[in-house]
Design a protein around this nucleic acid. Sequence first.
DNA 1: AGAAATTTACTGCTATAGCGGTACTAATTA
DNA 2: TAATTAGTACCGCTATAGCAGTAAATTTCT
Lengths: 79, 79
Amino acid sequence: MNNQNIISKAIRFHRKKSGLTQKQLAEIAGVGKSVIFDIENGKETVQLDTLLKILGALNISFRLESPIIHLMETENEKS
Amino acid sequence: MNNQNIISKAIRFHRKKSGLTQKQLAEIAGVGKSVIFDIENGKETVQLDTLLKILGALNISFRLESPIIHLMETENEKS
DNA sequence: AGAAATTTACTGCTATAGCGGTACTAATTA
DNA sequence: TAATTAGTACCGCTATAGCAGTAAATTTCT
């Protein structure tokens, strides 16, 4: 399961759980209905801001993870 | 700090930590050099697959988070 | 089954993302 | 200081993302 599939699945899952149609979600997120359909069907070339609008409308957040990412926060204390 | 800024900062941080130039990262990720520059400077309209290539090249993963997302995994056991 | 709602699947159109090339401007290093 | 490297900032070009509209297919509900 790659990242796009996870995203597709998560969006469809949360949309259904929220009782929204694709059209309704599109309106809430402020994007076209075609994009909802495309993303839910695994389209890999969505724009990040479009995706974030949809995730936001469904109250899905995301976090980046890496072995050293915690260093990034403490780096700001050097000022 | 919005989502795009988090991504921008994380990419630049990890790239520097990896000792890569923008051009080198672009080559490793298989994208154009302009995109690395744009993303690091907060461009909000990147394509998801482009972003994922870059994150992948830097060994950054991301995970979706929501109050009910754990239900999605167990949902697959109903087949 | 039939009706209504939803999803899927196209269409043409416009705006723009990503590309490599070039050039100027920092930084970095000798 | 001079030379090299890296980053920033444009350019024109091509491919395509996102859009609304339409309609067929599928699902849902009575």
